[in-house]
Design a protein around this nucleic acid. Structure first.
Lengths: 367, 367
DNA sequence: CTGTTAGCGCGTTCAC
DNA sequence: GTGAACGCGCTAACAG
C-alpha cells in the first residue's frame, strides 16, 4: 500500500513556506527561561511541569508555569535530565545485520513501533557479528546512557555478549545467552510441527521431500538454535504419523539457486515427490524455478510449503504457503520486556501459517 | 555471503563464562575518579585526556592520568560532555520507511557504516510519512541533543519538513526540500539514459516496450521527483536515436503482479516486443513470469532490463540486468556531508548498470 | 501552605 | 598546575 502511496508523492511546485519553519528561537528555551517568565524559581517550574504529586504549589503558580512553558515552547533537555535521573528514554538496539538486510527487518520495525509508543527512541548499531565491533557498540550506547540494550540477531543463535556492567537491562531478541535470560524467540518447534501437519492434513504422507536439511549430513549440527527446533517439530510430526521423507536434500546456503539445484537433482530421481517442504521461502523460490523448467505445475503436480513468509512468498505465482517468522511482534515484545519490569522470561512467539495457493489437497491418499 | 556464514552459527554448548563478563564495577567510573587516583584535579585530567595542545602540564602528570584512566577503564560520559560542548556524536536519522522495508535499506546501511567510522551513532526513527509523527521525531532527536539530522525517504521525493531551530544541521537523503539544500540524490537522469543506451547498443531500436510508465496517462505527474528524471533520461536517449517505444504500459503500483499483467496484455498484441524496459525490478519479475507462461525465453526471445538492483535481480533466472540505485553510497555520503562542514550542495550519486544475463545482442538490427 | 536555596550528576572551560 | 563556574534539570532540606 505504501509502496506507491499517492500521499508519498507531492506536487512539483515547492510548498509555500510554513510559518513554523521560519520563526524559531535561536537558542533552545531552558527551564530557567520558563521559571523567569513565570516569575518563579526553576525548582518550582520543574516540580510543576513534572506533575509531582506531593507538591504544595498554588494553583496560580501552576497556571503561570504552564502558560510560560507553552508560550515559549519549552521542551526539557533529555540529556541534562538523564544526568540526574539516569533515564534517557533511549534504548540501544545492537544487532548483527537486522536493520540493513531484509531478512529480519521486521524485528527492528516492531521494536521501533513499540519504542515510539512508549516515548522512547532507539540508538541502532550494527556489528556484522564481529565481536570487536560488538564491544564498541556496547560502549557507544552505554556512553550515551541508554536505559537498556536489545541484542538482536538476524538468524536466531546463541550470542556471545561482551563485557558490560551487570546492572544494565538486557533483552536478547532472536538470540540467546546464558547470562541474559530475558529472551524473545520464535516458537520454531510449533512452527515446524504446523508445516508438517499442514502437509499431512492435505493428504500427503510419504511422498514429501525435505529441502534444505538432511538428517545424515547435518546430524547434531545446526546453523542456528531455532532451526534445530524447527527440524524437531517437523520430524516429530512426521514420525508421530508414521511417515518418513522420501528424500532429504541439504544445502548450506538457503538461497534460490540452491533450491533450484536441489530440486533439479530431486526431479532426476526415479520417483517424483508430490510435496516439497522447504526450509525457507528462498529455497522454495528456487524449487518453483526448477519445477517450472521441468514443466511441472505448482500445486497441481507438486505442492510446496516454505518458512519465513518472505516477501517473495507473495510475489510467486501461485502464492507460496509458508510458516511466518513473527519478527514484528518479536521486536515489539523485546521493547516491552526491556521497558517493563517483569521477571526474566523466555518468550516464544508463535509462528502463524500463512495460507496461499501452493498446496492442494492430494487427490488420492497414498498407501 | 553472510546469509549462512558459519561464523554466525555457534556450538550447542554454552560458552564458558568470559572473565570480563563477571567483574565490572557497579558504578561507572567518572573523571573525578581518574583525577583522584592520579592525584590531580579533574581539570588537569580533562585537559590531558582530551589532548589539549595549549596545555602545559608536566609529562609526569600526563603519565599518571593516562595510567589511572586505563587502569580504571574510564570512559567519558558523552551525555555530560555534550551538555557542555554541544556535540553528542549522535545523528538523528528520520525516515518514512527506510529501515523497516527492504526497498531502501541500503540508505541506512551506508549511513550506519559511515557513522561508525566517524565515531558517531544514529538515533533511528521512522514516521511512515505522517507529518505529526515527523514533528514528534524531530522533537525527540533534538531533545537528545543530536549533532544533526538526516531526513531520508524510501522513494525520492520532496519532503515537507516541520519546524525546528534554524541552526540545526540537516541533510536530505533521497529527498529534497527548498529550505534544506544539503541533498543526496541518485543521478536518475544518467541512470535512465544508461538503461536506454544499453538496449540501443545491443541492437534494439523500435522493438522496445516500456513497462510501468506511459507518456499519455502520466503526463506531468510523477510519483517521485527522481522518477521524473529517470524518464527524461530514457526518453531523451530514445529520441536522440530517433526511436520511440513500440508500446508504453503504465501501472500505478510497481509490483510483480502488475509487471505480469502488463506483460500479458502486451503479448496479446499483434507485434511482439524484443526488449522490455521495466521501471523497476519487481515489474521485471512479473514480466519474467508472464513470458515464462507464454513459453518465451529471456533473453533469447525477449530481453529485459530493470531498475533498482533489487535482490530479486540476482534470484531471477537468468539474472536480471539492471541499473542500480546506489543507496549504500548515498547513505554514506549523507553522513559525510552532515559531519563535514562543506557548503550546501546537491550531490548526485551515479547509478551503476549491473550487467547480468537478461539482455542479449539483437541478432539482426531492425530497420 | 507556598515557595526557595544549595548541591548534585559529569565534563569542559575560564581566570588565576 | 588549580578552583569555580557552567551547561540543564532534579532533589533534599529549609524559610517565610
Amino acid at each position: 500500500m505504501y509502496l506507491q502511496d499517492p500521499q508519498l508523492s507531492i506536487p512539483k511546485r515547492p510548498n509555500p513556506i510554513d510559518p513554523r519553519e521560519v520563526s524559531m528561537p535561536p537558542r533552545r528555551v531552558t527551564l530557567a527561561d520558563v521559571a523567569k517568565k513565570a516569575g518563579l524559581s526553576s525548582t518550582a517550574a520543574s516540580m510543576i511541569l513534572n506533575g509531582r504529586p506531593d507538591t504544595r504549589l498554588s494553583k496560580a503558580a501552576h497556571d503561570k508555569v504552564h502558560a510560560a512553558a507553552a508560550e515559549l515552547g519549552y521542551r526539557p533537555n533529555l540529556a541534562a535530565r538523564g544526568l540526574r535521573t539516569d533515564k534517557t528514554q533511549t534504548i540501544g538496539f545492537i544487532s548483527d545485520l537486522v536493520a540493513t538486510t531484509r531478512f529480519a527487518s521486521g524485528l527492528i520495525r516492531g521494536a521501533l513501533q513499540a519504542s515510539e509508543e512508549a516515548g522512547n527512541v532507539m540508538l541502532v548499531i550494527e556489528t556484522g557479528g564481529d565481536p570487536r565491533r560488538e564491544q564498541k557498540a556496547i560502549d557507544a550506547v552505554l556512553d550515551r546512557q541508554v536505559d537498556g540494550i536489545i541484542f538482536a540477531t538476524m538468524r536466531a543463535r546463541e550470542l556471545f555478549v561482551p563485557a558490560f556492567p551487570p546492572a544494565t537491562k538486557v533483552v536478547m531478541l532472536n538470540a540467546t545467552n546464558p547470562h541474559h535470560l530475558q529472551t524473545v524467540l520464535p516458537d520454531e518447534f510449533a512452527g515446524g510441527r504446523a508445516a508438517a501437519r499442514y502437509l499431512l492434513d492435505h493428504g500427503f504422507s510419504s511422498d514429501i521431500a525435505l529441502i534444505g536439511h538432511n538428517a545424515e549430513t547435518e546430524q547434531g549440527y545446526f546453523r542456528s538454535s531455532t532451526v534445530e527446533q524447527r527440524i524437531h517439530g517437523i520430524r516429530s510430526t512426521m514420525e508421530a504419523a508414521g511417515h518418513t521423507f522420501m528424500a532429504e536434500l541439504s544445502a548450506w546456503d538457503w538461497e534460490p539457486q540452491h533450491g533450484y539445484t536441489l530440486t533439479r537433482s530431486l526431479l532426476s530421481g526415479r520417483t517424483r515427490p508430490r510435496a516439497l517442504l522447504c526450509m525457507n521461502d528462498r529455497l522454495a523460490f528456487g524449487a518453483y524455478q526448477a519445477l517450472n523448467e521441468a514443466g511441472l505445475r505448482v500445486p497441481d503436480d507438486v505442492s510446496i510449503i516454505g518458512f519465513d513468509n518472505d516477501e517473495l512468498a507473495e510475489y510467486l505465482r501461485p502464492g507460496l504457503t509458508t510458516v511466518a517468522l513473527p519478527h514484528e511482534q518479536m521486536g515489539r515484545r523485546a521493547v516491552d520486556l526491556l521497558i517493563g519490569d517483569s521477571d526474566p522470561v523466555q518468550e516464544f512467539i508463535s509462528m502463524p501459517l500463512i495460507e496461499r495457493a501452493s498446496v492442494k489437497t492430494a487427490s488420492t491418499p497414498h498407501p
